[in-house]
């Protein structure tokens, strides 16, 4: 008797859960031989949160400097999970002496990625004095 009622209940619960957590994966298409010539730079990573690293994984970083000396960076990130993930990121800029350049526009930017989605995070240095950068990724806290 117990099995007869418990089984349909369990099945219903599983179906409800599956419907609530349905994956939102992304299909993409791009040229097989891209024309753009990315200037990829080698990066150094400190990974303390492995689940966050799965939700927002850095694929590569490329950088270029414009005619007036402003550094522009582009970070390709990928969500390696099956569901939509939220995160915030913060970019810090440093001068040639490694000193932090403080700005009133500094902020933690919210961003989301669908399951399996790749996206670009672009940023331009606030001054030609900025020679280095650091990007911090965080899980949403509120």
């Amino acid at each position: 008797m117990l099995m007869k009622t418990a089984l349909p209940l369990c099945l219903t619960a599983v179906l409800c859960l599956a419907a609530g957590c349905r994956s939102t994966r992304v299909n993409t298409v791009e040229p097989a031989q891209p024309v753009a010539n990315k200037q990829m730079i080698s990066d150094q990573r400190v990974l303390l949160d492995q689940s966050l690293n799965k939700a927002v994984s850095v694929v590569g970083v490329n950088a270029a400097t414009g005619p007036e000396g402003f550094l522009k960076i582009q970070v390709e990130v990928e969500n390696r999970t099956r569901s939509r993930k939220l995160f915030t990121y913060r970019i810090e800029w440093f001068d040639e002496n490694g000193m932090l350049i403080e700005l009133p526009t500094a902020n933690a930017r919210p961003r989301s990625l669908e399951g399996g989605e790749r996206a670009m995070i672009t940023a331009t240095a606030p001054t030609p004095k900025a020679k280095d950068f650091r990007i911090k990724f965080l899980e949403p806290v509120r």
């Binding site: 414009g66 005619p67 007036e68 402003f70 526009t105």
Partner: peptide, 23 residues
């Protein structure tokens, strides 16, 4: 307050990208 910072940051970056950096 973070919305203003975010908008100002994006606008400044756009100004640098499209007007200042290309000279």
């Amino acid at each position: 307050i973070q919305d203003f910072a975010q908008a100002a940051d994006a606008m400044t970056a756009s100004l640098i990208d499209n007007l200042i950096n290309p000279g």
